[in-house]
Simulated assay, not measured.
Amino acid sequence: MSGTSLDGVDGVLVQFDDGAGAAGRVLADASVVMPAPLRDALLALQQPGNDELHRAAQAGAALADLYATVVQRLLTAATLTPAEVAAIGAHGQTVRHMPPGHPRLRPDEAPYTLQLLAPARLAEATSITVVADFRSRDIAAGGQGAPLVPAFHRAAFGRAGEALAVVNIGGIANLTAMRADGGVRGLDTGPGNVLLDGWCERHTGARYDADGAWSRTGRVLPALLAELLADPYFHRTGARSTGRDHFHLGWLDAALARHGPARPADVQATLVALTAETIARAVLGADWGGEAPRRVLVCGGGAHNGALLDALRARLPSITVETTASAGWPPQWVEAAAFAWLAREALCGRFGNVPDVTGARGPRLLGAIYPVG
Protein backbone atom coordinates (compact mmCIF):
# COMPACT_ATOMS: atom_id res chain seq x y z
CA MET A 1 0.00 0.00 0.00
CA SER A 2 1.25 3.47 -0.92
CA GLY A 3 -1.17 6.08 0.32
CA THR A 4 -2.00 9.71 -0.28
CA SER A 5 0.79 10.85 2.04
CA LEU A 6 3.38 9.52 -0.44
CA ASP A 7 5.82 8.80 2.38
CA GLY A 8 6.52 5.19 1.42
CA VAL A 9 5.22 1.71 0.69
CA ASP A 10 3.92 -0.54 3.46
CA GLY A 11 3.50 -4.28 2.98
CA VAL A 12 2.24 -7.15 5.10
CA LEU A 13 2.21 -10.87 4.50
CA VAL A 14 -1.10 -12.25 5.71
CA GLN A 15 -2.23 -15.82 6.26
CA PHE A 16 -5.97 -16.36 5.98
CA ASP A 17 -8.14 -19.11 7.35
CA ASP A 18 -10.65 -20.76 5.03
CA GLY A 19 -13.65 -19.07 6.62
CA ALA A 20 -15.20 -16.20 4.66
CA GLY A 21 -14.59 -12.83 6.22
CA ALA A 22 -11.70 -13.90 8.48
CA ALA A 23 -9.30 -11.00 8.95
CA GLY A 24 -6.16 -13.12 8.75
CA ARG A 25 -2.91 -13.22 10.68
CA VAL A 26 0.12 -11.09 9.83
CA LEU A 27 3.28 -13.17 9.37
CA ALA A 28 5.65 -10.35 8.37
CA ASP A 29 5.69 -6.64 7.62
CA ALA A 30 8.04 -4.41 5.63
CA SER A 31 8.25 -0.77 4.61
CA VAL A 32 10.38 1.28 2.25
CA VAL A 33 10.64 5.05 2.02
CA MET A 34 9.34 6.58 -1.19
CA PRO A 35 12.40 7.76 -3.20
CA ALA A 36 12.34 11.52 -3.72
CA PRO A 37 12.33 11.40 -7.56
CA LEU A 38 9.35 9.02 -7.62
CA ARG A 39 7.54 11.02 -4.98
CA ASP A 40 8.08 14.22 -6.99
CA ALA A 41 6.88 12.52 -10.17
CA LEU A 42 3.71 11.27 -8.50
CA LEU A 43 3.02 14.66 -6.93
CA ALA A 44 3.44 16.35 -10.32
CA LEU A 45 0.90 13.96 -11.83
CA GLN A 46 -1.74 15.18 -9.35
CA GLN A 47 -2.23 18.16 -11.65
CA PRO A 48 -2.45 18.44 -15.48
CA GLY A 49 0.87 18.79 -17.25
CA ASN A 50 2.89 18.02 -20.37
CA ASP A 51 3.52 14.46 -21.60
CA GLU A 52 1.34 13.00 -18.86
CA LEU A 53 0.89 9.58 -20.46
CA HIS A 54 4.62 8.90 -20.70
CA ARG A 55 5.33 10.25 -17.23
CA ALA A 56 2.47 8.24 -15.74
CA ALA A 57 3.65 5.03 -17.39
CA GLN A 58 7.18 5.54 -16.10
CA ALA A 59 5.98 6.36 -12.58
CA GLY A 60 3.73 3.28 -12.55
CA ALA A 61 6.65 1.06 -13.56
CA ALA A 62 8.91 2.58 -10.89
CA LEU A 63 6.21 2.07 -8.28
CA ALA A 64 5.80 -1.58 -9.33
CA ASP A 65 9.54 -2.06 -8.84
CA LEU A 66 9.30 -0.53 -5.37
CA TYR A 67 6.37 -2.83 -4.53
CA ALA A 68 8.49 -5.78 -5.72
CA THR A 69 11.23 -4.75 -3.29
CA VAL A 70 8.73 -4.82 -0.42
CA VAL A 71 7.43 -8.23 -1.54
CA GLN A 72 10.96 -9.65 -1.57
CA ARG A 73 11.57 -8.35 1.94
CA LEU A 74 8.37 -9.98 3.13
CA LEU A 75 9.30 -13.32 1.56
CA THR A 76 12.75 -13.17 3.12
CA ALA A 77 11.38 -12.29 6.56
CA ALA A 78 8.88 -15.18 6.45
CA THR A 79 11.25 -17.62 4.68
CA LEU A 80 8.67 -18.28 1.97
CA THR A 81 8.97 -18.77 -1.77
CA PRO A 82 6.79 -16.99 -4.36
CA ALA A 83 5.00 -20.28 -5.07
CA GLU A 84 3.70 -20.31 -1.49
CA VAL A 85 1.92 -16.98 -1.89
CA ALA A 86 -1.54 -16.93 -3.45
CA ALA A 87 -1.52 -13.31 -4.58
CA ILE A 88 -0.35 -9.76 -4.05
CA GLY A 89 -3.08 -7.21 -3.36
CA ALA A 90 -1.58 -4.04 -4.89
CA HIS A 91 -3.49 -0.79 -4.49
CA GLY A 92 -1.30 1.49 -6.63
CA GLN A 93 -0.94 5.25 -6.21
CA THR A 94 -4.02 7.43 -6.55
CA VAL A 95 -3.23 10.41 -8.77
CA ARG A 96 -6.79 11.42 -9.71
CA HIS A 97 -10.02 10.65 -7.87
CA MET A 98 -13.14 12.14 -9.45
CA PRO A 99 -16.13 10.12 -8.25
CA PRO A 100 -19.78 11.04 -8.81
CA GLY A 101 -20.47 14.51 -7.45
CA HIS A 102 -16.90 15.78 -7.78
CA PRO A 103 -17.06 19.57 -8.29
CA ARG A 104 -14.60 19.49 -11.23
CA LEU A 105 -16.71 17.03 -13.23
CA ARG A 106 -19.17 18.43 -15.75
CA PRO A 107 -22.59 16.76 -15.96
CA ASP A 108 -21.65 15.17 -19.30
CA GLU A 109 -18.35 13.73 -18.00
CA ALA A 110 -17.90 10.22 -16.62
CA PRO A 111 -16.63 9.82 -13.06
CA TYR A 112 -13.36 7.94 -12.64
CA THR A 113 -10.53 7.09 -10.30
CA LEU A 114 -6.95 6.41 -11.32
CA GLN A 115 -4.40 4.42 -9.31
CA LEU A 116 -1.04 4.26 -11.06
CA LEU A 117 0.78 0.92 -11.14
CA ALA A 118 2.14 -1.60 -13.61
CA PRO A 119 0.53 -4.78 -12.22
CA ALA A 120 1.75 -7.00 -15.07
CA ARG A 121 5.30 -5.80 -14.39
CA LEU A 122 4.84 -6.57 -10.69
CA ALA A 123 3.62 -10.10 -11.48
CA GLU A 124 6.65 -10.66 -13.71
CA ALA A 125 9.07 -9.28 -11.14
CA THR A 126 7.74 -11.41 -8.27
CA SER A 127 6.36 -14.54 -10.00
CA ILE A 128 3.19 -14.04 -7.94
CA THR A 129 -0.38 -13.39 -9.13
CA VAL A 130 -1.35 -9.74 -8.67
CA VAL A 131 -4.78 -8.31 -7.89
CA ALA A 132 -4.98 -4.57 -8.61
CA ASP A 133 -7.39 -1.78 -9.68
CA PHE A 134 -9.79 -2.27 -6.78
CA ARG A 135 -11.75 0.96 -7.05
CA SER A 136 -12.91 1.30 -10.65
CA ARG A 137 -15.67 -1.35 -10.53
CA ASP A 138 -17.38 0.40 -7.64
CA ILE A 139 -17.18 3.70 -9.58
CA ALA A 140 -18.69 1.97 -12.62
CA ALA A 141 -21.57 0.82 -10.41
CA GLY A 142 -22.33 4.40 -9.42
CA GLY A 143 -20.30 4.36 -6.22
CA GLN A 144 -17.56 6.58 -4.88
CA GLY A 145 -14.89 3.90 -5.18
CA ALA A 146 -13.94 4.75 -1.59
CA PRO A 147 -13.56 4.08 1.18
CA LEU A 148 -13.02 0.35 0.55
CA VAL A 149 -11.54 -0.57 3.93
CA PRO A 150 -14.82 -0.78 5.92
CA ALA A 151 -15.44 -4.41 4.88
CA PHE A 152 -12.03 -5.38 6.25
CA HIS A 153 -12.54 -3.27 9.38
CA ARG A 154 -15.71 -5.25 10.03
CA ALA A 155 -13.80 -8.53 9.64
CA ALA A 156 -10.89 -7.40 11.81
CA PHE A 157 -12.55 -5.38 14.55
CA GLY A 158 -16.31 -5.97 14.47
CA ARG A 159 -18.00 -7.60 17.44
CA ALA A 160 -21.63 -8.65 17.60
CA GLY A 161 -23.72 -6.21 19.58
CA GLU A 162 -21.00 -3.53 19.83
CA ALA A 163 -20.98 -0.15 18.10
CA LEU A 164 -17.45 0.76 17.09
CA ALA A 165 -15.76 3.45 14.99
CA VAL A 166 -12.51 2.85 13.11
CA VAL A 167 -10.72 5.88 11.69
CA ASN A 168 -7.89 5.52 9.20
CA ILE A 169 -5.84 8.72 9.14
CA GLY A 170 -3.70 8.57 6.04
CA GLY A 171 -3.30 11.50 3.68
CA ILE A 172 -7.11 11.49 3.62
CA ALA A 173 -9.00 10.34 6.71
CA ASN A 174 -11.88 7.89 6.49
CA LEU A 175 -14.39 6.57 8.99
CA THR A 176 -15.92 3.12 9.34
CA ALA A 177 -19.00 3.17 11.56
CA MET A 178 -19.96 -0.35 12.68
CA ARG A 179 -23.38 -0.41 14.27
CA ALA A 180 -24.40 -2.75 17.07
CA ASP A 181 -26.97 -4.35 14.74
CA GLY A 182 -24.23 -5.30 12.25
CA GLY A 183 -24.78 -2.47 9.78
CA VAL A 184 -21.73 -0.67 8.39
CA ARG A 185 -21.45 2.90 7.21
CA GLY A 186 -18.43 4.92 6.17
CA LEU A 187 -17.06 7.95 4.36
CA ASP A 188 -13.95 9.99 3.72
CA THR A 189 -14.06 12.67 6.41
CA GLY A 190 -11.60 15.00 4.64
CA PRO A 191 -7.89 15.74 4.95
CA GLY A 192 -5.93 13.59 7.34
CA ASN A 193 -2.18 14.15 7.02
CA VAL A 194 -2.05 15.57 3.49
CA LEU A 195 -2.17 19.24 4.50
CA LEU A 196 -0.26 18.70 7.74
CA ASP A 197 2.62 17.02 5.91
CA GLY A 198 2.70 19.47 3.02
CA TRP A 199 2.65 22.56 5.24
CA CYS A 200 5.30 21.09 7.54
CA GLU A 201 7.61 20.26 4.65
CA ARG A 202 7.17 23.71 3.11
CA HIS A 203 8.17 25.52 6.32
CA THR A 204 10.53 23.12 8.12
CA GLY A 205 11.90 20.84 5.40
CA ALA A 206 10.69 17.76 7.29
CA ARG A 207 8.28 15.44 5.48
CA TYR A 208 5.99 15.27 8.52
CA ASP A 209 5.52 16.83 11.95
CA ALA A 210 6.80 14.07 14.26
CA ASP A 211 4.24 13.46 17.03
CA GLY A 212 2.74 16.85 16.19
CA ALA A 213 5.54 18.60 18.10
CA TRP A 214 5.66 21.64 15.80
CA SER A 215 1.89 22.06 15.87
CA ARG A 216 2.03 22.22 19.67
CA THR A 217 4.12 25.41 19.41
CA GLY A 218 1.25 27.16 17.62
CA ARG A 219 -2.29 28.10 18.50
CA VAL A 220 -5.53 27.39 16.68
CA LEU A 221 -6.81 30.32 14.64
CA PRO A 222 -10.63 30.19 14.94
CA ALA A 223 -11.30 32.42 11.94
CA LEU A 224 -9.03 30.35 9.70
CA LEU A 225 -10.56 27.12 10.98
CA ALA A 226 -14.04 28.46 10.16
CA GLU A 227 -12.82 29.42 6.68
CA LEU A 228 -11.52 25.90 6.07
CA LEU A 229 -14.64 24.23 7.47
CA ALA A 230 -16.81 26.27 5.09
CA ASP A 231 -15.68 24.09 2.18
CA PRO A 232 -18.77 22.46 0.61
CA TYR A 233 -17.25 18.98 0.92
CA PHE A 234 -17.74 19.03 4.68
CA HIS A 235 -21.44 19.76 4.25
CA ARG A 236 -22.25 17.01 1.76
CA THR A 237 -24.53 14.22 2.90
CA GLY A 238 -24.61 10.58 1.88
CA ALA A 239 -21.71 8.67 0.35
CA ARG A 240 -18.68 10.84 -0.21
CA SER A 241 -14.99 10.49 -0.94
CA THR A 242 -12.16 12.84 -1.74
CA GLY A 243 -8.43 13.06 -2.39
CA ARG A 244 -5.36 15.19 -2.94
CA ASP A 245 -6.88 16.68 -6.10
CA HIS A 246 -9.31 18.58 -3.84
CA PHE A 247 -7.39 19.04 -0.57
CA HIS A 248 -3.89 20.29 -1.41
CA LEU A 249 -1.65 23.21 -0.48
CA GLY A 250 -3.21 25.36 -3.21
CA TRP A 251 -6.57 24.91 -1.46
CA LEU A 252 -4.99 25.97 1.82
CA ASP A 253 -3.20 28.93 0.22
CA ALA A 254 -6.50 30.20 -1.19
CA ALA A 255 -8.05 30.09 2.29
CA LEU A 256 -5.03 31.87 3.77
CA ALA A 257 -5.32 34.59 1.13
CA ARG A 258 -8.88 35.23 2.29
CA HIS A 259 -7.94 35.02 5.97
CA GLY A 260 -4.77 37.10 5.96
CA PRO A 261 -1.20 36.51 7.23
CA ALA A 262 -0.62 33.89 9.90
CA ARG A 263 2.35 32.34 11.69
CA PRO A 264 3.23 28.97 10.09
CA ALA A 265 3.08 27.14 13.45
CA ASP A 266 -0.40 28.60 14.06
CA VAL A 267 -1.53 27.31 10.66
CA GLN A 268 -0.17 23.87 11.55
CA ALA A 269 -2.10 23.90 14.83
CA THR A 270 -5.23 24.93 12.92
CA LEU A 271 -4.75 22.07 10.45
CA VAL A 272 -4.58 19.63 13.37
CA ALA A 273 -7.86 21.11 14.59
CA LEU A 274 -9.36 20.77 11.10
CA THR A 275 -8.55 17.06 10.86
CA ALA A 276 -9.78 16.39 14.40
CA GLU A 277 -12.96 18.43 13.94
CA THR A 278 -13.98 16.83 10.66
CA ILE A 279 -13.35 13.33 12.03
CA ALA A 280 -15.30 14.11 15.19
CA ARG A 281 -18.23 15.53 13.24
CA ALA A 282 -18.34 12.39 11.12
CA VAL A 283 -18.27 10.13 14.17
CA LEU A 284 -20.98 12.09 15.97
CA GLY A 285 -23.09 12.49 12.83
CA ALA A 286 -22.96 8.87 11.67
CA ASP A 287 -26.07 6.72 11.62
CA TRP A 288 -25.47 4.52 14.66
CA GLY A 289 -28.96 3.07 14.79
CA GLY A 290 -29.58 4.36 18.29
CA GLU A 291 -26.40 3.17 20.04
CA ALA A 292 -23.36 5.45 19.88
CA PRO A 293 -19.87 3.93 19.99
CA ARG A 294 -17.84 3.82 23.17
CA ARG A 295 -14.53 3.46 21.33
CA VAL A 296 -12.79 4.95 18.33
CA LEU A 297 -9.84 2.93 16.99
CA VAL A 298 -7.31 4.93 14.97
CA CYS A 299 -4.91 3.54 12.37
CA GLY A 300 -2.72 4.97 9.62
CA GLY A 301 0.11 7.46 9.93
CA GLY A 302 -2.03 9.89 11.92
CA ALA A 303 -2.17 7.37 14.76
CA HIS A 304 1.45 8.38 15.52
CA ASN A 305 0.62 12.09 15.83
CA GLY A 306 0.10 12.66 19.55
CA ALA A 307 -1.16 16.21 19.09
CA LEU A 308 -3.81 15.01 16.64
CA LEU A 309 -4.99 12.21 18.93
CA ASP A 310 -5.15 14.66 21.85
CA ALA A 311 -7.26 17.03 19.75
CA LEU A 312 -9.59 14.19 18.78
CA ARG A 313 -9.94 13.09 22.40
CA ALA A 314 -10.77 16.65 23.44
CA ARG A 315 -13.47 16.78 20.77
CA LEU A 316 -14.91 13.36 21.77
CA PRO A 317 -14.67 13.46 25.58
CA SER A 318 -17.23 10.71 26.17
CA ILE A 319 -15.60 8.23 23.76
CA THR A 320 -12.36 6.32 24.28
CA VAL A 321 -9.92 7.15 21.48
CA GLU A 322 -7.04 4.67 21.07
CA THR A 323 -5.03 3.12 18.27
CA THR A 324 -5.78 -0.21 16.65
CA ALA A 325 -2.76 -1.61 18.50
CA SER A 326 -5.12 -2.05 21.46
CA ALA A 327 -7.04 -4.55 19.29
CA GLY A 328 -3.89 -6.40 18.19
CA TRP A 329 -3.29 -4.54 14.91
CA PRO A 330 -0.41 -2.03 14.82
CA PRO A 331 -1.68 1.07 12.98
CA GLN A 332 0.78 0.73 10.10
CA TRP A 333 -0.48 -2.76 9.24
CA VAL A 334 -4.16 -2.10 8.82
CA GLU A 335 -4.51 -0.55 5.37
CA ALA A 336 -2.04 -2.88 3.68
CA ALA A 337 -3.78 -5.84 5.31
CA ALA A 338 -7.11 -4.52 4.03
CA PHE A 339 -5.95 -4.81 0.41
CA ALA A 340 -4.50 -8.26 1.04
CA TRP A 341 -7.96 -9.15 2.34
CA LEU A 342 -9.66 -7.61 -0.70
CA ALA A 343 -7.33 -9.59 -2.98
CA ARG A 344 -8.31 -12.78 -1.15
CA GLU A 345 -11.98 -11.93 -1.57
CA ALA A 346 -11.47 -11.38 -5.30
CA LEU A 347 -9.71 -14.73 -5.72
CA CYS A 348 -12.59 -16.41 -3.89
CA GLY A 349 -15.17 -14.66 -6.07
CA ARG A 350 -16.68 -12.71 -3.18
CA PHE A 351 -17.90 -9.12 -3.15
CA GLY A 352 -15.54 -6.56 -1.62
CA ASN A 353 -17.42 -3.28 -1.48
CA VAL A 354 -20.08 -2.14 1.00
CA PRO A 355 -22.80 -0.36 -1.01
CA ASP A 356 -24.09 1.46 2.09
CA VAL A 357 -20.64 3.05 2.33
CA THR A 358 -19.73 3.81 -1.29
CA GLY A 359 -23.21 4.38 -2.71
CA ALA A 360 -22.78 1.74 -5.42
CA ARG A 361 -25.88 0.13 -6.91
CA GLY A 362 -25.00 -3.15 -5.25
CA PRO A 363 -22.20 -5.45 -4.10
CA ARG A 364 -19.40 -5.93 -6.59
CA LEU A 365 -16.33 -8.12 -6.97
CA LEU A 366 -13.37 -5.72 -6.81
CA GLY A 367 -10.01 -6.02 -8.52
CA ALA A 368 -8.45 -7.11 -11.80
CA ILE A 369 -6.43 -10.33 -11.60
CA TYR A 370 -3.06 -10.73 -13.33
CA PRO A 371 -2.23 -14.44 -13.05
CA VAL A 372 1.38 -15.50 -12.88
CA GLY A 373 2.72 -17.67 -15.72
Rank of each mutant, 00 (worst) to 15 (best):
N193D: 15
D209R: 01
T278N: 09
V272Y: 00
A254H: 13
E162A: 04
G250P: 11
A155I: 09
Q268K: 06
G218M: 00
L256S: 12
A257V: 14
G161R: 06
A254M: 13
I169V: 14
N168D: 12
S215K: 02
L225Q: 03
G285T: 03
A163G: 07
G205Q: 08
T189A: 11
V166I: 15
W251H: 12
A230W: 07
A156L: 04
N168W: 12
G183K: 09
L274M: 02
T217D: 12
A254S: 15
G186Q: 07
A223F: 06
L195V: 11
T237G: 13
I279Y: 04
L224Y: 01
A276E: 03
N174E: 02
N174P: 13
L224T: 02
T242H: 03
R236P: 07
A173Q: 03
N168T: 07
E227F: 07
F234W: 03
G285P: 06
W199D: 03
A282V: 14
G158E: 08
D231L: 13
R216I: 04
D209M: 06
R202V: 15
S241F: 11
F247L: 02
H246L: 15
T217N: 12
G238Y: 09
A262C: 14
A180V: 06
A254L: 14
S241H: 08
D253M: 08
G243R: 08
A173M: 05
L164M: 01
A177F: 09
G183Q: 09
A273S: 11
A206W: 08
A173F: 01
G190D: 07
Y208S: 13
L249M: 15
G161E: 06
W214P: 00
Q268M: 07
